[in-house]
Structure formats: C-alpha cells, structure tokens
Design a protein around this nucleic acid. Structure first.
Length: 573
DNA sequence: GCCGTTTTCGGCCCGACTGTTTTCAGTCG
C-alpha cells in the first residue's frame, strides 16, 4: 500500500510541533511546516512521483535533506528524525498546542516544570493553583487557559462554509449600519471559500477605529470578549464561533484585505517578493523606504509586485503566484456560467418536492435543463426506483416536457454501483435515459484497490455517465472512503466519463485538490447540487466556490454547455 | 532547513494585543 500525501504531510507537521516545543530554530520548524503544506496541496502522489524518477528538490521549499526524508517515508513509512524526537519528549504534547493560549514556549514550560502532557493534567494543575507559581503565569493566564480547554472540547470542529454565511451576513448587516464604517468585508478562509471555516475575520475601514470597535462589541450575539484594542478586537459569539474585527484607514483597505484574506502561506510568499523589490508589505500598505506607495485596493498591492490580481479562492500558495508571474492564471468559472443541474431528487424517492415543482423552480432560475436523478432500488431505505417505477417516471417526464417552454427535463437515475462494480439496473432500461449518475452508497470499507476497481468496472458499462460524490465524504461526519483517485481519473478520461463536484454543503466532493487534479488530467466535471428540494438548487453556489478553489474554468464543466452540445458529451460509444 | 540580480553564509513576513512585567515575551493571525 502506497503512502498517501496526507500521511507524509501529517508526519512533518507533527515533527514541526515537537521541534518547536523543544525550542528548535524557528526557521527550521517553518521549513517542515512548509513542506507539509506543499505536499498536502499536491495534485500528484509523492509515491508516484518518486516511482517515475521525479526530482523532489524541484518542489519549492524542498532541498536535498527534505527530499531524502520524504523518500525515506515513502520507502519505510517512517521518519527516523521524528522517532528520535519522540524519544526525547512525549508525542502528545503536539495536542496541547491546539489549546487557545498555549504555544510552544508554554507547553515546554508546563512539561518541564510540572510534567503536564495532556489537557486533563493541565486542568487539575490549574485547579490546584500550581500554574501560577511558574514564572510568566498569573491568575488571568490560568483562567484563559482553562477557558481555552473548555472551548476546545465544546467547539473542536470547523464549521461548514454554508453555516458561516448567515452569521457573516447578520454581522455585515449590523456593521454596515454604522456611519463611521466606510467599507466592511469578511476576509479569511471564508473569503477564500474554503469548505470549512474556523474563525471569522472581519475588516472595516473608518477614521474613528475606537468608536467602530465599541459599536462592534455591541453586537447582540457576542458572548465573550477575548481582547479589545484600539484597532482590533476578538470575541466569541454565543454560538462559540470566534470573530476578529480589524479596523484600518481607508487608504489601507486593499493591503489589509490581502493580509486578512490570506492564506498565511500566500501572504508570506508575496511579502517575500516585496523584500526582493525592497518593498515592505504589511496590512497598512506597501512601503518603499518607509514611504507609503500603495494599498487602497487589492489590485494596487499586486501591481506593486508586478502581479495581476489573484482571485481569493486561489490564494493558497499552490502555484497561483507562479501562474500570476507567467500570466497563466485561470479564468475561474462563475455561477452565471451554469446552464443546468444534472443531479436532483423528487418525492418519488427521498426528495421533498414533486417533479413539476422541481422543473418549475429550475425554469425560474433560468436553467436550460435539469436531470431528474432519483435513487435506484438498491437504496431501499429511500424506496429507490425499480425498472417499473423508472419507466413510469420516464413517461411523466415526457408529459411535463411537452408543457415546458424554456426548460428540458432530462431522464436519468442515481444508480447504485454494487459491490462487484455492476450497476443496480439492467442496461435495457439505462439505455432509455439521457444520462446516468452513478454512486457508491454501500461497502465504504473496501480496500482502496478494491474500491477503485469496483468504480472502474462500473465505468466499463457504456451507460455510465457521471460518477457522483467520488469519495463519499461527509464533512465532520464521515471520512472519505479510500480510493486511488489518480487511477479513477485516468479511467474516467479513457472512457469519456464525467466526475461530479457535488455541491451539497456537507459533501463538496470532489474537494479542491481533487478538482485541480481532474483539470490537470483533462477530466471533465459536472457541478451538481444533488438537490432534495427546490430550495437546494441554491447549493450550486457552493459547488462553484469549490470548483474555483480547484482552478476550474468554464470549459472544464459540462453543465456550462447549451443543451445542444451537452448531448454529445453525455453519450459515449 | 532553504536559498541566491547584494549572498554558498546569513538572512528568513509583519504587526496587534495581553499579561506579567518595569521593558517585553508569548501568542495569534
């Protein structure tokens, strides 16, 4: 079994944490964190790259030493240096660093002086008043750490992007009502449209920053104020979500927006370019010999370092800066490019709305087509359709298409891929459909090899069109099932099959990295909502966000095509 | 540990806020 990129990245992150606690050279620690991030964002398997004889030192931030360490992990599944460090200090200290208010220095002190290695020990020590005897620790710090432990046990998970939207909108509405505030935006991973969001970073401009901070602290959803300065404040909402507000002058808005949108790695990369050009870049602007030269808009900031504007979704230091330098940034897909939805359900199985209601809603959205894809009978708990029921639905669609003027309803099914790779309905009925959406809903625990071969066997069926939610993950609920994604993509490409970017907020499957991988391999995508009600057609936005994070452009996505061209893609053979 | 239009050595992004301090370390983003 080959080592996954994520496992390699995890080893380096863990190593970085432990070395940081030991007080190692911070730049060496950063080098390990950096390589973890680079590997985590790769669209190729490191193991495959090595097998093909690629030189890993070509990767940014990877030199001779790291290339050797990576090769050792791939060969032996072990990192000897990590073993050595773990022999010196307990591996679990890495976990303590995740508690708010605890960094490497404090964790080191707690371990050295009080032999504390976990949150339970720490809580006991605080309750017995042992912490405040340490130099640099006082009563307040004790209480803050205690709160940090509590907060972490209650709100360990990042929220789904879709869950952030209503909170962001309500706070934006509140802030926009203050006359001192000129501009306000939610930046951070929310603005990069990452699939999950940790805390929310708001940015506002205005002259009287203290008044603005005061007003912010009057927001009625605020539970606890963690910090409060003249230009910045951090709070927890009643819901447990952390919100930061930063106030800067208007001329700094662009620079601050770049800074607060991140990612951190992207910021470091552009500041480094600044250093090369003898420019200092911070959240207030770009400075040449301490003189302000730009910062009002984001485009101004990028222009000063000779780069075009980079869309927030791309700002992960995953090649966007290189692409910007070469004028090769993607022209990202937008919601208005979408002409139809190729995956949705009706009352016939587990949807909430009738066929007619779904068609009407799609027409109101201005779509040219939708595919009705109810479940097949193998999914018994939703009363999936058998052949007879599907024939009945086909006839109903024929009747409704006669009535519709602007929209065409395509006949389809979300057909289960069975354990042996066969489809859950016979070919003689599948051939009557315009397309099929094929998915795995059982046997998630097969070995990666078996799961992959199951999927590829299914694609061998000439009536297989789209592979739905290719990894089956449910954010915060179920990990992706293990498949060899590169093999699946190559198989899809050879056979003319499409991969789905499922837009349900808890799925977003393919993820961003897999989307980018699909694009690089030339595999076409369908962005589909899997709507189970009329309202869920709106999830298309989340699918498009995720696709944008995966560098996807309009031509990569089949449901940007007019119906006349779509048919050619859907029919294989 | 990485890296090179000042460099193969000596740098490495930059600033706000808190708490425990008497001038600053630690943490966070």
């Amino acid at each position: 079994m080959t080592v996954h990129n994520a496992e390699i990245a995890e080893k380096f992150n863990h190593l970085a944490n432990l070395l940081e606690i030991e007080g190692a050279n911070p730049f060496r620690v950063r080098a390990y964190r950096n390589v973890a991030r680079i590997i985590g964002g790769l669209t190729k398997n490191i193991a495959d790259m090595l097998a093909e004889g690629e030189d890993l030192t070509e990767l940014p931030g990877v030199g001779k030493d790291l290339a050797e360490k990576i090769a050792t992990i791939v060969k032996t599944k072990n990192l000897p240096l990590l073993k050595q460090v773990e022999a010196r200090i307990p591996a679990v200290l890495s976990e303590l660093m995740k508690i708010e208010g605890l960094g490497p220095k404090r964790v080191q002190l707690l371990y050295k002086k009080l032999k504390i290695t976990n949150a339970d020990d720490l809580k006991t020590a605080i309750e017995k008043g042992r912490l405040r005897k340490l130099r640099g620790f006082g009563e307040k710090t004790e209480q803050n750490i205690l709160q940090g432990i509590l907060h972490r046990t209650q709100y360990a998970k990042r929220m789904k992007l879709a869950d952030a939207f209503p909170i962001v909108n309500s706070l934006l509405n509140y802030l926009k009502h203050h006359k001192e505030i000129k501009q306000v935006e939610c930046a951070g991973s929310f603005r990069r449209r990452k699939d999950t969001v940790g805390d929310l970073d708001f940015l506002a401009t205005g002259k009287n920053s203290e008044k603005i901070i005061d007003y912010f602290l009057g927001f009625d959803e605020i539970g606890k104020v963690l910090s409060r300065g003249t230009t910045r404040s951090t709070v927890h909402l009643h819901s447990g979500i952390q919100v930061d507000l930063r106030v800067v002058p208007e001329k700094s808005y662009g620079a601050a927006l770049v800074y607060f949108t991140g990612s951190k790695a992207h910021n470091i990369a552009i500041r480094r370019i600044g250093v090369q050009k003898k420019l200092k870049i911070n959240e207030y602007g770009i400075y040449k010999r301490n003189k302000y030269v730009a910062g009002k808009t984001e485009a101004d900031v990028y222009k000063q370092i000779n780069l075009p504007y980079i869309d927030p979704e791309l700002r992960e230091d995953r090649g966007e800066i290189e692409a910007a330098k070469n004028h090769a940034l993607p022209n990202l897909i937008t919601l208005s490019d979408i002409r139809g939805d190729l995956h949705c359900h009706t009352k016939a199985t587990d949807g909430d709305s009738s066929l007619e209601a779904m068609a009407k809603a799609a027409e109101e959205l201005g779509y040219e087509y939708i595919a009705i894809t109810d479940h097949s009978s193998h999914l018994a708990m939703v009363h999936g359709l058998d052949k007879k029921a599907l024939i009945k639905q086909i006839k109903a669609i024929d009747r409704i298409n006669k009535k519709l003027k602007k929209l065409v309803v395509l006949k389809s099914i979300e057909v289960d891929i069975l354990e042996d790779g066969s489809l859950d309905l016979p070919d003689d009925i599948l051939k009557e459909l315009d397309l099929t959406v094929c998915s795995i809903h059982s046997k998630f625990n097969l070995s990666p090899k078996k799961q992959t071969e199951r999927t590829i066997r299914a694609m061998d069926n000439l009536y297989f069109t789209i592979l739905a939610h290719p990894t089956g993950r449910l954010i915060n609920q179920r990990p992706p099932y293990l498949v060899e994604m590169e093999r699946i993509m190559m198989a899809a490409k050879e056979r003319g099959c499409i991969l789905e970017m499922n837009a349900q907020p808890e799925r977003l499957d393919l993820n961003d990295i897999h989307s980018k991988m699909a694009k690089e391999k030339g595999v076409k995508l369908a962005i589909s909502t899997d709507a189970h009600s009329r309202a869920q057609f709106a999830y298309m936005a989340y699918g498009v966000y995720q696709a944008r994070r995966g560098w996807i452009e309009k031509p990569d996505v089949i449901n940007t095509l007019p119906l006349s061209q779509l048919g050619k893609i859907l029919h294989r053979s």
